[in-house]
Design a protein around this nucleic acid. Sequence first.
DNA 1: ATGAAAGCGCTAACAG
DNA 2: CTGTTAGCGCTTTCAT
Lengths: 335, 335
Amino acid sequence: MATVKDLAKATGVSVATVSKFLNGGNVLPENRRRLERAVKRTGYRINSLARGLKTRCSMTVGVLIPRFNNAFYAAMVSELENQLSRNGYSTVVCAYHDDPATEREKFDFLLNKAIDGLIMTPLGAASQCLPLLRQTTLPVVMIDRVCDGMARDMVVTDNAAAAADAVRCLAARGHRRIGIVTGPEGVFTADERLAGYRRAVAELELDPAPELVRRGDYSPDSGNRCMQEFLDLRRRPTAVIITNYEMTLGGVIALENRNISIPGELSLIGFDNLELAQVIRPPLTMVVQPVAKMAAAAVALLRQRLANPADNSFSIKKFPAELMLRDSVKTINMK
Amino acid sequence: MATVKDLAKATGVSVATVSKFLNGGNVLPENRRRLERAVKRTGYRINSLARGLKTRCSMTVGVLIPRFNNAFYAAMVSELENQLSRNGYSTVVCAYHDDPATEREKFDFLLNKAIDGLIMTPLGAASQCLPLLRQTTLPVVMIDRVCDGMARDMVVTDNAAAAADAVRCLAARGHRRIGIVTGPEGVFTADERLAGYRRAVAELELDPAPELVRRGDYSPDSGNRCMQEFLDLRRRPTAVIITNYEMTLGGVIALENRNISIPGELSLIGFDNLELAQVIRPPLTMVVQPVAKMAAAAVALLRQRLANPADNSFSIKKFPAELMLRDSVKTINMK
DNA sequence: ATGAAAGCGCTAACAG
DNA sequence: CTGTTAGCGCTTTCAT
């Protein structure tokens, strides 16, 4: 493996000049030519460890997420990696599979890994990495799920408003008995969405029956199960809101299997209008989170902090989700 | 940020002893105690850049895949990250979105990033990173898709056999007009699976009509479209094989929308029995690739090569896919 | 524009 | 078991 010294020797200039050349500084045309040739000939590649040691930055950012096999996080990582690599950063990823111990472990792992910053989706209330997080001076941006009172940059969807909007949309069309499938207790997004639902149900004086609230685990299977439970109720809801992509698809499959027509027999609002959801008939009314914008915002916040480490203020960036109205919602008789 | 020097100063031992302690060597119990305290007190974290510079290894491996928002690759990255982190390696990921230029760019990018090894799924025939790949001495393991004649370790499914098995399974149940939805031309897995299909069709003297072969792009939408094309044929196939997860689900949705019963009117064999596929009724007969085993094999091969760089032999590890027989395949009248 | 030299934080001889 | 020391490859003053 060739080094700057080798290049210096090969071209007759000093290592300082080589370094300058490597970093786009001005060198004599003659030297530039010779250096370019030498680089090509030797297959020289910069040693980013040495550079990082000297410059105290690795041009690498950590990304810590719940899991990869979830369409929303897959989309998010995809966007993050895109944005970051466009800015010259590489992305080192870890998943914690919704396990608090693993979350802490991976967090610690990343802290040892010479990353310039971290973009993470913390577990939520049950997080065990909070003390560590509080200690570290590493720039950290939380995305999608956040922890309160952390004095960190955060990027979130307005989850409560999103769920409330969905309820309002249904109520405006005559629905008074509206079910919701939300995520596990203690998970930030699940709690927020449920709170929004409850607030809207109370405000609009809709049916507040507790049987209308089901908790899944954000998997297709749980969406399927929760939907079946709704269908088995003596008095079915006339509409159901399902709060993530996987559970929405699971719910649709449950309806298909029982030959329940959408929206004929049941109106449906799903979350996250990702690939598969777009090919379902009838087209589903969806709460769409602006994944790409959120990722871009997270990267922007991180870069800003990297550029200005002295700034001890922080921002919370809250994006509205968009309600895409489509055929899976029907107006029913107002009684 | 504390360094070994600080620890040395704080505890009265030398940096060599600190280093030994940090790396699990034997030090006097007394010294160990004091060092542990000092580490805790200062929040010392090793500088992995400095360590890497010295040891010439970064404990980081690159992973280059087509995309994240694909269930198979999501599962693969998930497994890889698991396996790698279990072995102390962190994972830096890049996606190239099936674009040859991006593939090359990201490959080059990773080569500059002080990784100890690379696990990659190359594009296939159209790859532009082959010259670079040929040059580099970096340990590289190819997985899922491979490039021939590269003298590298490779981990693949026996794609041709998998497709041929699916054809045989259907033929044994009386089907003679079997459609296949495969991936884009030039993509390794697509070409292999199609070849296996063709071989089996020829061997068993089934209907070789070219209209029975459709090419999707591995997206749900394309699966939907191809399936509709099959349904619009004057003479429909009696059975269809769909060669990845996303297209399979897209195909199922097309059938639901046209109220075609599975397997009553059409037998179906899909690929990749991932989450969503498991909740569909009737349960789908599936070609299942052993993702976890493949990932484990890739990591094992990489570690082996890392442990023994002198070894200039290489292995190709080919896993059989398993055909999971379920209700979506029906026996029809032999005529 | 170039060069000499110091030093980033760590590990690994080597000597004791 | 411990300490001294050289040096990994690079960037960066500071002169020239």
